[in-house]
Amino acid sequence: MDVETLRNYCLNKPHVEEDFPFDEDTLVFKIGGKLFALISLKSNSSVNLKCDPEKAIELREAYHAVQPGYHMNKKHWNTVHFNEDLEDKIIFELIDHSFALIVNGLSKKVRTELNLT
């Protein structure tokens, strides 16, 4: 996985915006104003993704590449390292999971405005 592949995958999702809300290094992907993926452009060797807490524990136990979210709420976020013991296909699935969690957490009004209901 590389940053450009991840970026293209995220931006192909409906209504996703990219932003640099923290600094010029941290690229953030949002839906409805809520973050679902963050990546450092300096290191570009991992991505932070939201995750269901139970699934997060399972993933951390199964894969060395999945660690508690760096600088994030460790219960709800994972840092997923690229090019370790996790295939890109699984990283894409984890991006989808993060995106779905955020969409499901949006208000009904926002989901309707974005045609995501």
Rank of each mutant, 00 (worst) to 15 (best):
D25K: 14
E113I: 01
E4L: 11
G69K: 01
K42V: 13
I31Y: 00
K42I: 10
V47K: 05
L41V: 09
V16G: 08
L38N: 01
A62C: 13
I31V: 15
P68N: 07
T112P: 05
L116A: 06
H15F: 07
I95A: 02
H15K: 11
L101T: 04
E84Y: 11
C51M: 11
F36L: 10
S40Y: 08
I57T: 14
G33C: 06
M72T: 02
V110I: 15
I57G: 09
S43V: 14
A65N: 03
H71W: 12
A56V: 06
E87W: 04
N48Y: 03
I90S: 04
Y70A: 10
C51Q: 06
L41T: 15
T26P: 04
D88Y: 12
L94V: 12
F20T: 01
N44C: 12
D23A: 10
Y63N: 03
V3G: 07
L59I: 11
Y9H: 03
G32A: 04
N73K: 10
D19L: 10
E58N: 10
N73C: 12
K74Y: 09
F20L: 12
Y70D: 13
F99L: 12
Q67V: 12
E87K: 15
P21D: 09
L116D: 04
R7L: 01
K42C: 04
G105L: 11
W77L: 04
N44H: 15
H76N: 13
M72I: 03
D25F: 15
I102P: 01
R7A: 03
N78H: 07
N83W: 05
E61S: 13
K13P: 05
L35R: 05
P21Y: 07
S43A: 10
F82M: 06
L116C: 03
N104M: 12
